[in-house]
Each structure stands twice: as C-alpha cells, then as structure tokens.
Nucleic acid binder design. Structure first.
Length: 751
DNA sequence: AAAGCGTTTATTTTT
DNA sequence: TAAACGCTTT
C-alpha cells in the first residue's frame, strides 16, 4: 500500500513525476528554489524501493550537510517505513570516511586515522613553516591552506603541484604542501579534502575495490550538485560509470560555494560525460508568494552564467517587499526587532517562522544585543559549539585515546591544564625522538614506562618527571577508552586530567564553559544511545564532520539568526535580509576582485536569501556602520536596482532612485497588492520620521463588530485605538484572555 | 613558565 | 572593537 505506484506518484506534478520514475540511466534534475526538490529525491527513492524493486542496500544518496541527510532519512521513514534503515544516506565526507576506514589500508591509509579540522590544519602548517625556518609573519598559513585545498579539490597531489608551479608563490606552496602531507601522514590524520581525494585515489588504484562499491551501489543520487568540486564529481563518476544510474539534482542559481572550489561546470560536464542523460527542469515554486518570486527572478536575471528558467507559482501575490534604511546598524536591528514584535502580536506568526539573514557572521552581534534587550527569543546558527576551546581540548584527549599518533591533538593538550611542560620541554622531546628514530608519542611512552631509547635524553630531570606523569595519564585514559561509553570517558578525562578543576575556577565564565563540557557529554550520550555504545571512532567522526547548518533546530520557538550561506536549503514564513550595502553584499572582496563571476556569486547569494521567504520579505540596510571601531558611511547595495519598485513598500532611498528598467511588465490583476489598511507600516528611518505625515488611515473596525481571527477564532471587538496609520484593536475571544492586536497584522475578518 | 602590558591587526562565506 | 601578538617582567 505504502509503496504502491499511486501513493508515491500522487500529488506530484508532471516534471516531478518524470524525475521520480526515470530510474534507469543518468538523470539531471534542475530544480529551482521551492520546487519540491527534496520531495523528488525522497519519492524517487521510495519509487526505487517499491515499484522499482531495488533493494535498499543498493542505493546511495549523497548530500553536503548532515542536516540534509537527516532530513532525507526522516522524510523517508514515513514514506517507506522500515526499509530506510538499509539505505546509505550521508555527506560526501562521511561516506568517504567510511570507505577509507574499510578499505583505505590498500593505499596506505591507517585504519585508525582521525580527521584534521581547520584548527589542526593551521597548526600543522605553522609547524611546517617554523621547521623550514621561514618568516612566520610573512607566511600566513591561511594562504597556503587555501592553495592546498584548491589543489586537492582538483585531484592534484604534491608532486603534480610542484611540477605545475609557475609562480614563486606556487613554488613556496608546493614545498609547504609536501611537508604538510608528510606531517598528516605521520600523525595518521586526514584533512577534509583528503577524505575525498584519497577515496578517488583508492578507486583509481584498486579496480577490485572500485568494482565492489560499483556493484554495491547501483543507484546513486546526489543532492546540491552545483556545490560539488571536481574531486567530488570524479568520485561520483567512478562509482556510477558501471551501472550509470546516476541522478544529480542541482540549481546553478544557488551555487554559492565557488570559493570552496565548487564548480558549476560539473552540471555541464555531466551532460558531456553522460550524453544520454535525461534532463528534467522543475520550474513550479510551491514556497513563495508571487511578489517574492518575481523579486527573486529580477535579482537573478542579470547573471550571465546561467540557464534561463521560467520559475512560476500559483500562490497568491502576497504582501509587498519591505525596504528599510536605518540610520546605523543599531537602528536597523531595532527595526527588525520591532517588526518581529508586531508580527508576533498578530498571532499569525511564531518566533520559529522568522529568520534574519546576513552576509557575515560578525553582523549577528548587534542583532543579538538588540534582541536580548527586546527579550526576543533567538538562536544564532553558527556559534560553533565545536570550536570552543574547552570542547576542542576535550576532543583532543578523546582523539588521543583513539589515535595515539595524533600529534596535533597531543600538542594541544600536553600542557592543558598546565603541567609545566613548556615549549622547551616539547622541543627537547622532539629532538630526542628524532635522534632515536622514534615519534614523539613513542618518546613520551618510553618516559612513562621508564624505558631507554638508546640515545641520551636531553630533558631536564624535572621535565622528564612531568612528561612521564603525563604519559602515564594518557595510557590510563587510553585503557579506559576501551571500557567506557564516550560520555563516561569524557567525564573521566575531565576529572583525571584536572580539566574540570582547571575550568571551574569560580568565575561565571568558567561555569559556563563547564556547562559546555556537560553539553558535550550529553551529545555523546545521545550518540551512544543510537550508535554502537562504545564506538569512539564513529563519535569522533560524527563530531569532526558536523557543520554549522546542522545546528539549525526548527523545534525551538526562537527567531533564527543565520548567514546567507547557511540558510541555503531552509525556508521561513518571514525573512529579513540585513546589511544590504555596498561592501557587505556584494562583499568588498568580490567587488575588489575584478572578477565578474564573483559578483555573480554575490547576486546568487542574495537570490538564495530572498527565495527562503514564504510570505514576507524585509530588505534592510544602514546609512552608516561601525566597522573595526570606526563609523563609515554606507551606500545601499547595487542589487536594489533590480528589486521592482512597484513591489516595494517603503520610502527608503534605495528604492526611490530610478530603478533599472527591467523586462517584467506584468502589472498583475488590477488594484493594489493588498488593501492599504492591511499592510503593516514600516518604520521610517529617523530622518524621514521627521517629515513623515501620518495618513490617518481609518480602520474598518468598530466596537461591537464580530470578527474572525485565523488562530483565535470568532471574537468581538471591544475597542479601537488609532496608532499612526494603523489601529490597535482590543478583541474578546471566548475562553481566551482579551487580546490587543494591531489591525494591520491581525488578519481579522469582519463577520 | 606564566602573567602583564602595549601594540597591532583583522572580518566573507564552511564541508 | 576585541582578539591576537610580541615583548617584558616576575
């Protein structure tokens, strides 16, 4: 019944149905925002399992974020019941990590490898530069790391990189790349890019291993295909080339990760590599109002690097777009908070239905400050839990339990909490290990067990005692890691190492840091509850591959503060996009690059933000903003020129300037978008507030009127108070406390 | 080894 | 602005 044809194909439009039922051969689905992309993917899997007769174990679905993977699993559970358990749905990184854990030894990847995160990468490059005796100031690690990452994303190893180096900068990078890989190797570490690149190497070098996975995963689906880099695409191509049942879903207009080497050209290459690919375009939007969709269309149309799509919707026209100019970022935040309060007062919106989006994380600060003052419940996505010092310290101990060779983790915690092992002791330790032909962890172990290494130990007596004690501590913890579930292991580490005492120094901050550690234990306990209880390896992997957007939790009733990047894939009734200024969106880095494709990416970013909104969209900017402690005048974003003025409500400067003439002329049905009285009045900016003349809009309501509210039901108007152009109505609903509502927001219907 | 102090520097976006 | 760094002193 559940898997029957009718159930799965019910309520799919023809294009969606096409994408779901084309199960044989390559398929490219170009899916505009809100076009039911996830629905297509999940229904396609259900269709494969049911009418297609494909066993769950033969299906591989790849996503970019864990959250997307989770959502897919969840939606599938109701669709196909128990079968979803045998599907492999995961991120590129988690899937590759799994493959390497299983078969990586064939190309020399240690079975107990751990994953190096950004912080580790930076430490390693720092160490390399230091060992090379290069000037640490003139050689910032970030620049090298991005070159290395770019190389790996193009499947270029250190040797090939050196051969291709045609600039001094590249030659330096080649040297760093070489050493960096050696350091990773010594510590049994793989960085994010290695996970993918090494898997491709494995498949290239071992046809038997490749054949095994090709046979296993006869049906492959890739979500957010526009975000794949060359290496990721190579992986998919290798896996899929035998059975050719490869379905990729993407939208080049939502490609915002080119800086991470994502390459839209993969979409074009797909059609070259699989010339028989069927192409399905999903153009009907089910998410947004016409007004929002039209605005989005106008914003994206100027881009040259795109296929023209004809997005349309059968939804209502909806409210006009609100544009607001703030005096500065404080007033801008103030406006956002006030508008949210108004929306809440209407009773038709919950906090969780509202998101505030911005270009850079640093913009969240002023919003948070303002929201705290307004007591608006909110959650900042991207306050990265796993980047907090105390968490990373504890994780370093955990990683050392699993992979004793993890030098980066060792370096991190050898003197945290302080045990008098300073830079000198560490240098001596390295020297000693090098002379004896051993690794640093081995040298520590030797000290702990009072063993000789055959060469004199340069450490002072005191240092030797300290290191030996530390070594024994580590060995105790390593032994414990085989006995305890992860949560209890963390507890043991915190107490045995003295980390708990070290954190809880009596300060408020110390307590809150300790709270974070407790939170980590909870995460671990939750993890153990559904995974193998003692699996330290999979916990570490889970944590290492956790991303910001994964934190987004729709269950809590709070306003979401989120970057435009992290907002991709989400949707909200009400969206505020703030800081729409030259220099911020588009960002200075893109303006200065002189690279038009970078500006196109900025445009896509705004497009992504706009298309997150279901019902209402607010676009704001400030006329001055404090950056690096100094106030700078700001200009509204150039993208405002493409926001159709007839769709805008507001008096902000940005939309009064003559707009670009755009091709869209459809005035829609005669009459205003919505009756004026039902439009909320946007706050005027302070300068305009002085000039603004209240229009004195009369309200439609009078005391005694019977009205209907979408949420509270039928009620009777008690009183009506003018509020500028608006009116505050007091309404009595049976069995409910008396409500005071703003006429413009409340959506009351006269009975 | 660690704490204190003055100076500087930086903010895209993140699997 | 505020985190990070390098220099000094204890």
């Amino acid at each position: 019944m559940l898997n029957s044809n009718e159930t799965i194909l019910e309520r799919l439009n023809p294009a969606q149905r096409d994408a779901v039922t084309t199960t044989r051969g390559p398929l490219l689905v170009l899916a505009g925002p809100g076009s039911g992309k996830t629905r297509v993917i999940t229904h396609r899997i259900a269709y494969l399992l049911g009418p297609g007769g494909v066993p769950a174990s033969a299906i591989l679905a790849v996503t970019f974020t864990k959250k997307a993977a989770h959502e897919m699993v969840e939606r599938l559970q109701t669709l196909v019941l128990g079968q979803s358990r045998h599907l492999l749905i995961g991120t590129f990184h988690s899937i590759c990590s799994r493959i390497l854990r299983q078969d990586g030894e064939a190309i020399g990847v240690a079975r107990t490898f751990t994953i190096a995160d950004e912080d580790d990468q930076e430490r390693i490059v720092r160490r390399v530069i230091k060992d090379l005796n290069w000037d640490e100031k003139r050689n910032p690690p970030g620049a090298f790391l991005s070159r290395i990452s770019a190389a790996k994303s193009h499947l270029i190893g250190p040797d090939e990189f050196r051969r291709a180096a045609d600039s001094y900068a590249d030659e330096l990078a080649a040297v760093v790349y070489q050493h960096y890989q050696e350091e990773l190797g010594k510590a049994d570490l793989l960085d994010f890019d290695d996970l993918i690149m090494r898997t491709v190497h494995l498949f290239q070098e071992r046809s038997d291993v490749l054949a095994k996975y090709q046979e296993r995963y006869q049906h492959i689906l890739v979500d957010e295909f526009q975000d794949t880099n060359l290496t990721q695409y190579a992986l998919i191509r290798l896996l899929g080339q035998r059975y050719r049942n490869v379905c990729v879903v993407g939208d080049e207009d939502q490609s915002v990760y080119s800086w991470r080497q994502a390459d839209i050209r993969n979409i074009l290459n797909f059609e070259n590599d699989f010339p028989d690919a069927r192409v399905v375009v999903l153009e009907q939007n089910y998410r947004s109002t016409q007004t929002i969709l039209w605005t989005a269309r106008e914003i994206i149309t100027p881009n040259r690097q795109r296929k023209d799509k004809r997005l349309f919707t059968e939804n209502d026209r909806g409210e006009r777009i609100f544009v607001f100019e703030g005096y500065d970022e404080n007033e801008e935040a103030q406006y956002v908070a006030t508008q949210i309060e108004r929306l809440l007062a209407s009773g038709t919106v919950h906090y969780r239905d509202v998101a505030v989006m911005y270009r850079t994380n640093s913009q969240s600060r002023v919003l948070e400050k303002t929201f705290l003052r307004h007591r608006l419940p909110h959650k900042v996505v991207g306050m990265r839990f796993y980047e907090r010092k105390e968490i990373r310290d504890l994780l370093a101990y955990l990683r050392l339990c699993y992979n004793p060779n993890d030098l980066t983790s060792l370096e991190r915690i050898i003197n945290v909490p302080a045990r008098d092992i300073g830079a000198k002791s560490i240098a001596d330790l390295q020297l000693w290990a090098a002379r004896a032909g051993r690794t640093v962890p081995e040298a520590i172990r030797a000290l702990a067990l009072d063993e000789e290494l055959g060469v004199p130990c340069p450490l002072s007596k005191r240092a030797r005692t300290n290191v030996a004690e530390f070594g024994r501590l580590l060995m105790t913890l390593q032994a414990a890691s085989h006995e305890l579930v992860v949560g209890r292991l963390i507890e043991k580490i915190a107490s045995l190492t003295g980390y708990q005492e070290f954190l809880r120094d009596g300060s408020q901050e110390g307590e809150s840091r300790w709270e974070n550690v407790r939170e980590l234990m909870t995460v671990a306990d939750e993890f153990s509850a559904y995974d193998a209880p003692t699996s330290l390896a999979s916990f570490l992997e889970d944590v290492a591959l956790a991303a910001d957007a994964d934190e987004y939790d729709s269950s809590a009733d709070a306003v979401t503060l989120i970057t435009l990047h992290a907002a991709k894939g989400l949707e909200f009734d009400v969206v505020f996009i703030v800081g729409l200024e030259e220099g911020l969106c588009p960002h200075n880095r893109s303006i200065e690059s002189n690279d038009l494709s970078q500006l196109e990416e900025e445009r896509r970013l705004l497009y992504v933000g706009v298309t997150r909104a279901r019902r209402r969209l607010f676009l704001t900017y400030a006329s001055r903003r404090t950056q690096f402690g100094t106030v700078m005048p700001r200009q509204p974003s150039r993208f405002f020129k493409d926001v159709p003025r007839e769709l805008v409500f507001g008096t902000a400067r940005a939309v009064q300037a003559p707009g670009r003439r755009h091709g869209w002329t459809d005035p829609g049905p005669a009459g205003p978008v919505t009756s004026r009285s039902s439009l909320p009045r946007p706050l005027a900016s302070s300068s305009e507030a002085l000039r603004a003349k209240p229009a004195g809009t009369p309200t439609r309501f009078k005391p005694g009127d019977r009205v209907e509210h979408p949420k509270f039901g039928e009620g009777v108007i008690v009183s009506v108070e003018p509020r500028g152009e608006d009116a505050e109505v007091t309404v009595a609903f049976p069995d409910l406390p008396i409500k005071r509502l703003l006429a413009s927001y409340a959506n009351l219907r006269l009975l």
